[in-house]
């Protein structure tokens, strides 16, 4: 495989904005709602081009989720946009009853997820959303890794019937997936093949995992790097095929370890074919203000920490 590189850094939320605009052009049923964060969610272009299909909910997220549910009755496909905290925690029961239980075709699009939103601090740093959303029956949970993939995922979920939670972030991060690469919901992506350890990463930590691979390669360790962009349904086949080869696993996510993607993977492994596993994630803590990369380092989510977890789990084989 060729080495993974990047030419520019872009924010995943801008990928969402671009994808929303593009899918809005080809599908008249797409409508969008936002709760006083149109600029932050990069929904301004959609709003401008389709003013009749854009609804400003104001600062009323619970209301927005109910509106979205109602809009599906008669065939609209609502995309809601606000920060990850206000997309999930604040409105969990509205999602649970009016969207998930009622199996409505709502796309809950959540920006500023995780520690990397930075200076706004813990009130805004959502680290529990994957857990809450994956527990809901009928819900699909997607967390793309870069700008291109977020754009592709935004377009793919429009054609995927049923409730979807799409998680993305605030800061500019490396763009390393191909432009116009189609997004296949539920199919994990093997980015780098390896034989000694399987590293399963999601969202912003996919790039950290790619950097971890280089650190490990220097030490003669061959890591397989897999992008779990769809957390639910999880790709059981790819996970098992990889760990059958490597015999151990590391998960990496910008989320609490409790209830995160890693727990889903460990569930797959323990059910089908147990192997030792290490978890890179936030370990039962709230975040804090700081710069994105400073925070990843302080909370143990950096490439170095992923590499260290890989070395540790290999010892446990």
């Amino acid at each position: 495989m060729t080495k993974i590189t990047y030419a520019e850094q872009k924010d995943t939320r801008s990928g969402f904005g671009a994808g929303l605009l593009e899918i809005g052009r080809s599908n008249n049923n797409i409508v969008a709602l936002c709760a006083d964060l149109t600029g932050s969610l990069k929904m301004n272009d959609f709003k401008k081009e389709f003013p009749d299909r854009f609804f400003q909910a104001g600062i009323s997220e619970a209301n927005m989720m109910g509106l979205a549910s109602g809009l599906t009755v008669g065939g609209k496909i609502p995309f809601t946009g606000t920060f990850a905290n206000f997309s999930t925690g604040r409105v969990f029961d509205q999602i649970r009853q009016s969207i998930a239980y009622s199996n409505k075709n709502v796309k809950i699009c959540a920006s500023h997820a995780g520690l990397t939103l930075g200076e706004d601090g813990a009130t805004h740093q959502m680290l529990e959303d994957i857990g809450m959303m994956k527990m809901l029956p009928n819900m699909t949970v997607i967390c793309p890794c870069d700008y291109n993939q977020t754009k592709a995922a935004t377009m793919a979920i429009a054609d995927h019937p049923g409730p979807v939670y799409l998680r993305f972030g605030r800061p500019k991060m490396p763009v390393f997936t191909k432009e116009d690469e189609p997004f296949e919901i539920g199919k994990a992506q093997i980015l780098i093949q390896g034989v000694d350890v399987s590293v399963f990463a999601t969202g912003h930590l996919v790039w950290q995992a790619i950097e971890a691979e280089a650190i490990l390669a220097e030490k003669g360790i061959s890591a397989e790097i897999i992008n779990i962009h769809t957390i639910k349904p999880i790709d059981v086949e790819t996970i098992l095929a990889s760990t059958a080869k490597t015999g151990c696993a590391v998960s990496a996510e910008e989320h609490q370890i409790f209830g995160g993607m890693g727990e889903s993977i460990s569930g797959v492994l323990t059910q089908h074919r147990p192997v030792p596993m290490e978890f890179v994630g936030v370990n039962d803590l709230f975040g804090e203000s700081g710069k994105p990369l400073e925070l990843l380092a302080k909370y143990g989510l950096s490439a170095e920490k992923i590499a260290a977890a890989a070395e540790k789990v290999i010892q446990r084989k």
């Binding site: 200076e119 706004d120 813990a122 009130t123 804090e288 203000s289 700081g290 400073e294 302080k298």
Partner: peptide, 12 residues
């Protein structure tokens, strides 16, 4: 708003 501060982005 800097790392390790008590003066968090939002009051805590």
């Amino acid at each position: 708003r800097k790392i390790n501060t008590r003066l968090q982005g939002h009051p805590a």
